[in-house]
Design a protein around this nucleic acid. Structure first.
Lengths: 207, 207, 207, 207
DNA sequence: AATGAATGAGCTTTCATTCAT
DNA sequence: GATGAATGAAAGCTCATTCAT
C-alpha cells in the first residue's frame, strides 16, 4: 500500500473514531459534521471526501462494530471444548453480552441503530476480508455439527438475537427491572426453550 | 369544565393529532414546530403555551397511545372466559399484536420511541383518569387469580414484553424473516416457556 | 392599512432597495442573501419571509422598474400634443432612453435581465393597481387613434423595443461605437422605417 | 510543433470542449471547475495550467465560436455571385442566422455572453492565424466594392448586428412573437433601410 | 390567550485554489 | 507536467425561540 493510500486510510479511520465518540456521547442528531471534522482534526470539507453524509458514516460504523463483536466471540468459541448446541449458542450470547456490558457506550450505539435488516445483511455479507466466511455460515455449521434438525433455523436465530438485544439493553444500562446476572439466568433458559421448540424430533434412528 | 378550559383542551388535542400525523409520516426529526402548528391550524407561538418542545409532545403522545392499546386489550379480555394464566397473557399479547399489525404507522411510532423506562412508568402510573386502576395492577390481579406463585413477576413481564416488541417489529413491517402467523406460533410457545420457568412449583398443596 | 402591515411593506421595500443597490454594483451572482439582509439592516432569516430566493427578488425588481419607466413615459405623452403615430412612438422611446441615460445603473440592471418573455408579460399583465389599464392597451389605442392599419402590431413593437434596447445599451454605457445623440438620429429614422414597412396601404378610401 | 506541445494543445482543446458542453447544458454558474476537469478526463489541478478561471475559459470560447461563425459565412459569400451591397450583407446575416437556428445551444451561449465590446474586438483583432485579415477588413472591402459612400460604417454595422442579435434570439428560441421566417421578411427590409439611411447620396456622377 | 414577524445561530454542502507527491 | 487530497471560506437555507401586539 502506497504512503498516500495509507494516509487516506488513517484519515478515514480518524473520522470513524471521532464520529463514534460524538455519536455515543451526544447522540447522532446532536452531532454536526463540523463537530466530527473538528474532533478528527481536519477541515469540514474533508469529511465529504470520505462519506456521503452523517448517516452513511453511521452505517459503516455499525457494520464494523457489530461484525467485530461476533468475530471475537466466534474466535473464542473455537478455543473452547463445548458439546451441545445449546452450550455453544449460550457461549456466544454470553460473550457478546459481557462485552456489551463492559462497553456500555457501544451497547447504546448498536442497540439504537441496529435493525434486523442491517444485522442480517451484516451477518450474511460481512466478513469477506479474511476468508470469505461469514458469521451466518458459522451458525449453519454449528447446527450441522449438532446433527440435529430444526424447522426454521433463521427464525430461531432471529428470535434469539432479538430476545437478547431487547432484554439486555435496558438491564445493562439501567439495572432495571433486574440486574444482569438475574436476567442471564432466565435468558439462557429461554434460549434453550427456543432451540428445543424448533427442533424436529427425528425418529429413533438406530436399529 | 368552563368553556375556556374546553377550548384549551381542544387546542392541545389538535396539536397532538397534528404532531402524530407528521411524526409518523415524515419522522420526528424532519418535523418542525412550524409544521405542527400549521397542521393544527394555529400560530407557531401557540405551541409553546402547551408543550415545552417537540420531545415533550412526543413523550405525551407515546404514553397516550400505548395506554390506549393495553386498555382496549384489557377491556376485551374481561369479556372472555379464559381459564389459565397462559391463555390470558397470550390473549392480551395477541390483541396488541393484531392491533399493531393493522396500524403499522402506530407500530412504527411506538416501537421506535418506547423504552422500558417510559413503558414501565406508563403501566404503573398511567390510567389515572377514570378509576386510579393501572395496567400493572391488572397484571398483578391476573397472577393472583391463577393462584400460582412466580419468582419475579416484573422480570417475567419485562421479558414477555420485550420479546414481543422486538420480534414483532420487523416481522410486521417487513415480513422478514418469517410472516406474522409463523412467528406467533413460536412466540406464544416461548411465552408459555417463560411463564413456566418463572413459576415456583409449590409443594403438593392438598392433603 | 394597519401599523403592522405598513411595517412589513417597509421591510420589503428595504430589501428591494438594498438588493438593487448590490445587484447593480456587484452583480447578482456576487451578491449573497447575507449581503442583502445586512444592507437592509435585518437578519438573514427575515429575507426568506419576503422572497423565495435571490432570483425571485430580482424578477420583482425588474418588473417594478420596467413598469415605472413606461408609466412615466405614458404619463408625459398624455401631456403633449403630438399628431402622427411616429411622433408618439419616438416620444416614448426618447423618454425611456433619456431616463436610462441618466440612470445608467438602472440601464445596466434592466438590460442584462430583461427578456422579451418577461417584458411582454409585464406590458400585458402589469399595471393592474390603478386602473386595470396596461401599457399594451395604451399601445393599441395609439395605433387605433392613427386610423392606420398594420400587418402585425406585436412584431412591430417587438422589433422597435429590441432595436432600442440592444443598440442603446452599449452606446449609453461605453459611448461606443458612437455617442447617444448620433445614435438617436439613425435610430428614430429606422423606427419610422419599421412602422412604414408594417403599414398596410389602404385603398384610396374616399369617393 | 513538438510532441509535447501537441499534447498540451490537445489538453487545452479537451477543456474547451468539455466546458462548452457543460456551459450550454447546465449554465455557467452551475458548472464547477471540478465538473469541467472531470468531463475532460483530467485532474482539477490541471485546469489551472491552462486557464486562469472559469470566466477566462468562457471568453476564449465565445471568441472562438463567434469567429468561426463569421468565417464560414464569409467563405460561402466568396463563392456566390452577388451584386449589390444589400444582397451581400443580407447573405451574411442569413447565413449566420440559419446556422444559429440549427444550433440553438450555440445561440443561447453566444447571445447571453456577447457584448459589443467583445464582439468588436473579435471582429477587428480576431483571425490572426492564417492571413492577418480580419472580418472587419472584409466588411470594409465590401463597402469599397460597392463604390458607395456611408456616413458612419461602424455605426451601420453596429445597428445591423445588434438588430439581428436582439430580434433573433427570442424568435429562434421561443418562436415568439412570430416565427423566424416572418421575422426575416421584416428584418431584411429594415437592414436595407438602415443601409439606405446611412448612404451619402453623391452628386450626379456622370456627365 | 393567541399571534406571527423577527431573529441569528447553526446546519449542510459546495468549490476555487493550493501544494506535496 | 500532472495529480487529487486537503482546505476553509462562504453560500443557501432552516428553525427554535422570543416578544410586541
Amino acid at each position: 500500500m502506497s504512503k498516500l493510500e495509507q494516509k487516506k486510510k488513517q484519515k478515514r479511520e480518524a473520522l470513524l473514531i471521532a464520529a463514534f465518540s460524538l455519536f455515543t456521547s451526544k447522540g447522532i442528531h446532536e452531532t454536526s459534521i463540523a463537530d466530527i471534522a473538528a474532533e478528527a482534526h481536519m477541515a469540514k470539507g474533508t469529511f465529504y471526501l470520505y462519506f456521503k453524509d452523517k448517516y452513511d458514516l453511521r452505517d459503516k460504523l455499525i457494520a464494523e462494530h457489530a461484525k467485530n463483536l461476533f468475530d471475537k466471540a466466534s474466535l473464542d468459541l473455537s478455543k473452547e471444548e463445548l458439546n451441545t448446541l445449546e452450550d455453544k449458542v449460550i457461549f456466544i450470547a454470553d460473550h457478546v453480552i459481557n462485552e456489551l456490558n463492559e462497553n456500555k457506550i457501544l451497547l447504546r450505539f448498536i442497540s439504537k441503530n441496529l435493525s434486523w435488516g442491517v444485522f442480517h445483511d451484516m451477518l450474511v455479507t460481512g466478513g469477506e476480508d479474511d476468508s470469505g466466511f461469514t458469521f451466518y455460515d458459522g451458525y449453519c455449521a454449528l447446527l450441522e455439527q449438532s446433527a440435529r434438525k430444526f424447522r426454521n433455523p433463521e427464525l430461531m436465530l432471529y428470535m434469539i438475537v432479538e430476545l437478547i438485544n431487547s432484554t439486555c439493553h435496558n438491564v445493562i444500562l439501567m439495572q432495571e427491572p433486574v440486574d444482569l446476572e438475574e436476567l442471564k439466568l432466565e435468558l439462557y433458559g429461554v434460549i434453550c426453550d427456543i432451540i428445543h421448540r424448533q427442533e424436529i424430533e427425528t425418529e429413533w434412528e438406530t436399529s
